[in-house]
């Protein structure tokens, strides 16, 4: 607290710093990957050195490591690395499953489903659904799955989809992932619109806001005009109302916004 914070850099230097930051991040990632691959395939000799130092820290008197110990250490580390890398590869597919044991007494076994969505150059935080499947051994093909717990946001039509695809779990999960993907795209489009609108000085847009579902986007101008844009599930612009500063409708603007998807609103408005 005693040292004063460094003075903020002049605004002109900010983009340069950002690019520098990005390149450093890339470099860090590259080096980490290199280190990992070296570890996975390093020779036995080097492994014995690190393995022995690692053990001496915890126990003071260690008998010299045998060859089989060194080998098993190397195999173990390379197997974990391979397994982790393979899990990553599978997860990129978008939908993966895992088994979960309930920590509370009946200790039910649940099926976990992990849904991942890629948008805006990154993978979103995965969402999870935990279900219990019907006991197929006693009555095959009977009943349906039950959703126990999930991390999905409340606006996703979980109940409707689970009813609609009650017979097919894979269809249900795929429909759910589609809804999540569309939501991520809507959000990305809304963020892009905000960036473009605020960047365009001529537009005089004060703010662009949207609800959690990205079903309603509101644009507020500096002169008091306001636009309400209904966005369909697939990012298409539905109904639009633009009210000018004096309280009247701005039909011209409305027509401009309506003709296409949310993605293109900024382009149509000339922002």
């Amino acid at each position: 607290m005693a040292t004063p914070p460094p003075p903020p850099p002049p605004p002109a230097a900010l983009p340069a710093l950002h690019t520098q930051l990005a390149s450093l991040e890339r470099e860090k990632t590259r080096l980490t990957t290199q280190l990992l691959s070296l570890r996975a395939s390093r020779p036995v000799a080097s492994a014995s050195a690190t393995a022995s130092t690692a053990t001496t820290t915890t126990t003071t008197t260690t008998p010299p490591l045998s060859d089989s110990q060194i080998l098993s250490h190397v195999f173990a580390s390379s197997t974990t690395n391979h397994a982790a890398a393979r899990t990553r590869l599978h997860r990129i597919a978008g939908i993966t499953t895992f088994a979960v044991r309930d920590p509370s007494p009946p200790h039910e076994k649940l099926l976990g489903i992990r849904i991942e969505v890629f948008a805006e150059r990154t993978f979103r935080i995965p969402h999870y659904i935990l279900l219990s499947l019907p006991d197929t051994s006693s009555a095959p093909k009977s009943g349906t799955f039950t959703i126990h717990r999930h991390t999905l946001p409340p606006f996703l039509p979980l109940a409707r989809l689970s009813l609609l695809h009650a017979r097919s779990l894979s269809a249900f999960v795929r429909a759910l992932r589609r809804a999540m993907l569309l939501h991520a795209r809507r959000e990305a489009a809304a963020m892009k619109l905000k960036r473009q609108a605020l960047a365009a000085a001529a537009a005089a847009v004060e703010d662009v806001e949207w609800d959690a579902e990205v079903a309603l986007v509101t644009v507020t101008w500096g002169n008091g005009s306001k636009a309400w844009i209904r966005v369909g599930e697939e990012g298409d612009v539905g109904k639009v109302v633009v009210v000018g500063g004096s309280g009247g409708r701005e039909r011209g603007l409305e027509r401009k916004i309506v003709g296409g998807g949310l993605e293109g609103v900024a382009g149509r408005m000339g922002w």
């Binding site: 280190l35 990992l36 570890r39 982790a84 890398a85 993978f123 999870y128 935990l130 717990r149 991390t151």
Partner: peptide, 17 residues
């Protein structure tokens, strides 16, 4: 732990050492 989103590393992050 599932809701916190910190259960697993991000897919594009390098494997933890």
């Amino acid at each position: 732990v599932y809701a916190d989103g910190m259960l697993e590393d991000g897919l594009l992050q390098p494997l933890s050492l």
